[in-house]
């Protein structure tokens, strides 16, 4: 599939360009529909990070498209300043080691250091 004229890729590109922090997830930040998505939302919320949650369950094309976009087979997926950071495992590991907070700070994304 050519990546240029793929409408889903265009939507993904605009979402991650328009929002500093984006999570493609199952469900919504208030009602996550999957434990892994909930874990990423919790980490971001714990750090006081403003982010946009996009529910891929509402759009099967997006659900598959985001996996093709990053060649990453699972949901959730976190993007910071347009860059794919990782899925649940990586975010959890980065949260625990403090790398997530470091990345956010380096990218100029407001966050409160974990207590």
């Amino acid at each position: 599939m050519n990546t240029i004229d793929n409408p889903v890729f265009e939507r993904i590109k605009s979402e991650i360009a328009d929002n500093d922090v984006v999570v493609f997830m199952k469900g919504t930040p208030v009602f996550p529909q999957c434990g892994f998505s909930a874990a990423v939302v919790q980490a971001l919320t714990h750090m006081g990070v403003k982010f946009k949650g996009i529910d891929v369950l509402q759009d099967p094309g997006l659900r598959q498209g985001v996996k093709d976009f990053t060649n990453w087979p699972t949901i959730p997926q976190l993007y910071v300043k347009g860059e794919f950071v990782g899925g649940c495992d990586i975010i959890r590991e980065m949260f625990q080691t403090g790398e997530l907070q470091q990345l956010l700070t380096e990218k100029g994304v407001e966050n409160t250091p974990a207590a």
């Binding site: 087979p73 990782g86 990586i90 980065m94």
Partner: peptide, 10 residues
């Protein structure tokens, strides 16, 4: 990077 390592396993 971690992402690349995980992609190799996937």
């Amino acid at each position: 990077t971690r992402v690349q390592q995980h992609q190799m396993v996937y």
